[in-house]
Design a binder for these strands. Structure first.
Lengths: 122, 122
DNA sequence: TCATTATTACACGAGCTAGTGTAATAGTGT
DNA sequence: ACACTATTACACTAGCTCGTGTAATAATGA
């Protein structure tokens, strides 16, 4: 049993809680869905990770970092702002974004651990 | 600070790890994206939760439980099987599905904790 | 005011998603 | 073989997503 090597301290009594819990209502499922939808995109994942690493970055910085057009970056940043994941702050010409939603980092981290632990092969 | 009330034992040193980690490559991000896409859907979330609770269920049972047509359920179950999230087993007329991917339950559980802890309002 | 930079607004379009309806397949019991 | 049930295959479609290109907005400096 060589599982969770680099990802040990994830101490979630996962199945226990989920098992006892009554079936997700469509509404509850909808809430979860919204959360996962945010993370279900290549570009947004990289944006969010950049922001976890650097706390605060502006559109052009992110645009260079990801190698994508500013419009595309702005699109996603705004979507994330609409969902209260990010907040924006203007400083001169630049608009800086940072993460305010505390769900993002833990979920990102856990998912990364799990996928790296060869989630699918064993 | 009344946060993580019912979800205490989630001991992920989230930001620490993500912060040190080099920026996600498009490929890495793609892997994560695939994982989150699975969970980014109302119906699939309820299916998966049903299966976490009951270990093994057939199409018609799930169809009744979710109040959806068998075709719709079968569609999703098959997608989940293609992705190696579920496996199927035939018993007479019925085909029973169960979860084999170990990432699902922890992610579902963490997300549920986080969203219930009023992720967005605090 | 004017030129320049940074960001956003908006319309557009290719591509994917998820359910529907119909038809086919597979197993069961007579 | 036949009727019946459970599930899947397939084609179709409404709706959403995400990047693109063009144009507008906002701040800066001369």
């Amino acid at each position: 049993m060589k599982k969770s090597k680099r990802c040990v301290n994830v101490k979630i009594p996962s199945k226990t809680k989920l098992k006892k819990r009554p079936l997700l209502s469509p509404v509850e499922a909808g809430g979860l869905q919204a959360m996962f939808k945010v993370l279900a995109n290549d570009t947004r994942l990289r944006l969010l990770h950049s922001l976890v690493r650097s706390e605060e970055l502006c559109v052009s910085e992110l645009s260079k970092t990801l190698g994508m057009k500013p419009q595309a970056i702005s699109n996603q940043l705004q979507r994330l702002s609409d969902l209260r994941i990010l907040v924006a702050r203007r400083d001169g010409n630049n608009i800086y974004y940072r993460i305010v939603n505390e769900c993002i980092a833990p979920l990102l981290n856990l998912a990364l651990c799990l996928t790296e632990a060869e989630c699918r092969d064993n």
